[in-house]
Simulated assay, not measured.
Amino acid sequence: MQNDYDRQVLAWLRGRIGDAALQSVAQRLAGPRKPYLSTICRSLGIRPPSRRQFAAETARMHRAVGDTYLARIREILAKAPSHEAPRQ
């Protein structure tokens, strides 16, 4: 693993082909050093998503999580009794 992009590609590959297939390809390509993920992808004839695509997906996930939390906060606030001072 060289960087965060490599970690994202590895997770993507694991989801796409599974751990057993990934391990098999890595062992087949292994020489004195472990093969690069780009080498594994080329041997499989697939192209991983770009850094930009990963970033866009991450942003979508973060927005979805934020929207979920905001909806929950709104629910809590809607159920909370009002604490306004009495008017005179």
Rank of each mutant, 00 (worst) to 15 (best):
D19N: 14
Q23C: 09
R14G: 14
Q23M: 15
A78F: 08
A30C: 09
P48T: 08
R16Y: 10
I40R: 05
L29T: 08
S50G: 01
S50P: 05
K34W: 11
R28L: 05
F54M: 06
A71W: 00
Q2K: 12
R87L: 15
Q2T: 14
A78R: 14
P35A: 07
N3G: 06
R47K: 13
R72N: 05
G31P: 04
L77G: 04
D67M: 06
Q8N: 13
S43C: 06
R60L: 10
D6A: 03
L22K: 05
A59E: 12
D67L: 05
A30F: 04
L77K: 10
D4E: 15
E57D: 11
R74I: 04
V65E: 06
R74C: 05
P49K: 01
A71N: 03
A26D: 09
A56D: 11
H83V: 13
Y69F: 09
Y69W: 11
A80I: 05
H83Y: 11
Q27H: 06
Q23K: 09
A55E: 06
K34D: 15
R72M: 09
I17N: 12
L44K: 09
R16A: 11
A20N: 14
N3M: 03
T68G: 11
R72D: 08
G45Q: 07
I17E: 10
P32D: 14
L37Q: 06
D67Y: 12
I40P: 01
V9W: 00
K79G: 02
R52L: 10
I73F: 06
Q53T: 13
A71F: 01
L22A: 05
E75W: 03
A59M: 00
D4L: 15
A80K: 05
T39H: 12
